[in-house]
Nucleic acid binder design. Structure first.
Length: 593
RNA sequence: GGGGCGGUAGCUCAGCCGGUCAGAGCAUCGGACUCAUAAUCCGUGGGUCGUGGGUUCAAGUCCCACCCGCCCUACCA
């Protein structure tokens, strides 16, 4: 039976282009999951966008001599183009600088405020004297009062590891421009997290055995020490605070993490409006039978397993202080938080400044999207940090994608095209034929079960087991030797092609572009698995911006589909490109340079 | 400092509630085959499952301590 599934994908921060570590965390896993769910007959709404507010963007903009908005515009476009090129099937990929987003964020804030879950508090904060903006702890450095180390940051000393308060630093200075920060009293709104301790505890306990253990343990552990948390900043780049006396102040804004997580909701609402049914989003957000899956890197667990549920409970009036839902109505909390670990690059942390990085754009200029998707799916940081190396990439690409899978497709279609020019009939099937056919048909249940649990490595490995079995079958049956018995030769090739078709279906969530090609090679018409498209939109004549969307209800379904004998076959062209091992050194040289 | 995750064959990794769990893929070596992007198939070697204790009839699999790597620590998204 069909279920509503919200795929909520972490919002990439628009202070620069995204690298392959980023997309291995949130991008590829969420897309594999969504494509599978659509094929399984579920109604998927996959949303995300660029996260464009906050100090880091302002700082980067200052550095480049741009306004924050100009910088955000630039990288919003770069990121949207890159994610489209990767084939990520967003129903809507938008941004946080839309009027719609501002309105939804302010509505959530008002709801929390009305229910008593946010309150003002005067705190001591560091600001930059020259700009008047909040200077985050991370941007302050000085001498550690504990160990005397001079490069200590405001929040923590890298030398002795102690947590610090920037007020205690000796000779504090701004890492941005070297000036001495001013510590001033400033009023901010706080989110009353302790008021959600009970409801969050109940919520998380119920996820026992369902979520990945690392996510759940981490979240449960945080419950022990919930403190009120500031949700506003001294900054002009962000969503205005929607209260009298605050609304028009240019120096106070909602803090970026507060507005960013609300993007899941605002983008769903924007999607509904663009689809022509402004209430359509409610089927995912106000339906107890709907499921919400959130995909992100491990650094984001606290925002998705703790703070976002708290915001929703607060808006619903379901925290310790009670209350009533706001004008949007009661909203559902996440069903599952799927967190990835981190990808490293040739043994080191990704670092743009030290050029230990490979941007999605650069990668896709030289290699195919499916090659990257394959690597991330089979060797990515699903359960633990994993290392990307160019030699491993070449090995996987050449040995698995090209030699095992691509070659199976190529040899099967090539032989059938050459000898029959069409899909030959299957007659008098042997035990071996039946065994292989049964193997690939059984894989729909096993691979599907793994995909439904977000166990992507298991899933793709089981799909590849089918590929290996098919290669073995051909080696044993030796159809190329059977010249005098066309019926038997044709039957073998029919079986091989059928299993190629099944495997193509099993691999579609991982390798949509090449699966579409196989679909066409085997006579399919129309679109198999839809690809995302970038288009320009605006809001009531406002500034145009790019969004990713697409029609993804193609022919692809998660099931065995019998091939039609007599379908014309043309000699195939290779699906994947074999890579010269020389590129390992070339790429390493590029990193070094 | 506190919390979390990981440490299994040369490499990348599977191993849920303890009892065919010592595995897969790749790489190595030997062989077969030629339909296919010299791809494929068969066979082979190799690990005291980070270290030291403990619980148990039985422990990569549970408990404790320690070593190493990584992440988070809520003003980095």
């Amino acid at each position: 039976m069909s279920q509503h599934i919200l795929t909520a994908v972490a919002w990439p921060y628009a202070n620069g282009p995204r690298h392959i570590g980023h997309v291995s965390g949130f991008g590829v896993p969420s897309d594999v999951f969504s494509r599978y769910q659509r094929m399984a007959g579920n109604k998927v709404l996959m949303v995300s966008g660029t996260d464009e507010h906050g100090t880091p963007i302002q700082v980067q903009a200052d550095k480049e001599g741009l306004t924050a908005r100009q910088l955000a515009d630039r990288y919003n476009r770069v990121i949207a183009e890159d994610l489209t090129a990767l084939g990520l099937s967003y129903d809507l990929f938008t941004r946080t600088t839309t009027r719609n987003h501002y309105a939804v964020v302010q509505e959530i804030f008002r709801g929390l405020h009305n229910n008593g879950y946010v309150f003002p508090k005067t705190t001591l904060g560091a600001i930059s004297p020259s700009t008047g903006r909040t200077l985050p702890d991370r941007y302050i450095e000085g001498t550690c009062p504990i160990c005397g180390y001079d490069g200590a940051r405001g929040d923590q000393c890298d030398n002795c590891g102690n947590q610090l308060d920037p007020v205690d630093l000796i000779n504090p200075r701004s890492r941005i421009n070297g000036e001495t920060p001013k510590f001033v009293e400033t009023e901010h709104f706080m989110l009353d997290l302790p008021a959600f301790a009970d409801v969050l505890g109940t919520y998380l306990q119920a996820k026992q055995g369902e979520w990945r253990p690392n996510v759940l343990k981490f979240a449960l552990n945080l419950l022990g020490d919930l403190q009120p948390r500031a949700i506003t900043r001294d900054l002009d780049w962000g969503v205005p605070i929607p209260l009298d006396g605050w609304r028009d102040r240019s120096d106070k804004r909602l803090y970026v993490w507060f507005d960013a997580v609300i993007g899941y909701l605002s983008s769903s609402i924007e999607w509904a409006r663009r689809s022509g049914d402004p209430d359509a989003w409610r089927a995912w957000w106000q339906n107890p039978d709907a499921r919400g899956y959130y995909f992100m890197g491990k650094d984001n667990i606290v925002f998705h397993a703790e703070i976002w549920p708290a915001l929703l409970y607060g808006y619903n009036g379901e925290g310790a202080k009670g209350g009533t839902p706001g004008s949007l109505g009661r909203l559902e909390v996440p069903s599952e938080v799927v967190s990835s670990e981190f990808l490293t690059m040739e043994g080191k942390k990704f670092s743009s400044s030290r050029s230990v990085v490979i941007y999605v754009r650069d990668f896709l200029e030289r290699y195919s999207a499916d090659a990257l998707r394959y690597y991330i799916a089979v060797a990515g940081p699903e359960n633990q940090d994993t290392d990307f190396t160019w030699s491993e990439f070449v090995n996987r690409n050449n040995g698995e994608l090209v030699a095992a899978w691509g070659n199976l497709v190529n040899r099967s279609i090539s032989m059938a095209a050459k000898n029959f020019g069409e899909i030959p009939p299957a007659v008098d099937l042997t035990d071996a034929d039946h065994a292989l056919l049964a193997r690939s048909r059984a894989a729909f249940a096993s691979v599907g079960a793994e995909l439904g649990r977000s166990r992507f490595k298991n899933a793709i490995n089981e799909a590849f087991d089918v590929v290996r079995e098919a290669n073995k079958y051909l080696a044993e049956q030796e159809p190329w030797k059977i010249k005098d018995d066309p019926a038997r030769q044709g039957s073998i090739l029919h079986v091989a092609l059928q299993v190629v078709d099944d495997a193509k279906t099993l691999l579609t969530p991982f390798l949509p572009a090449s699966s579409n090609k196989i679909y066409e090679m085997l006579g399919g018409s129309g679109v198999w698995s839809g690809m995302p498209e970038l288009s320009e939109v605006d809001e009531d004549g406002g500034q145009a911006y790019p969004v990713i969307s697409g029609s993804y209800n193609g022919a692809a379904t998660w099931e065995h589909r019998p091939l039609q004998e007599g379908t014309r076959l043309a000699p195939p062209t290779p699906l994947f490109t074999k890579l010269d091992p020389k590129i390992v050194d070339e790429e390493l040289a590029r990193l070094a340079g």
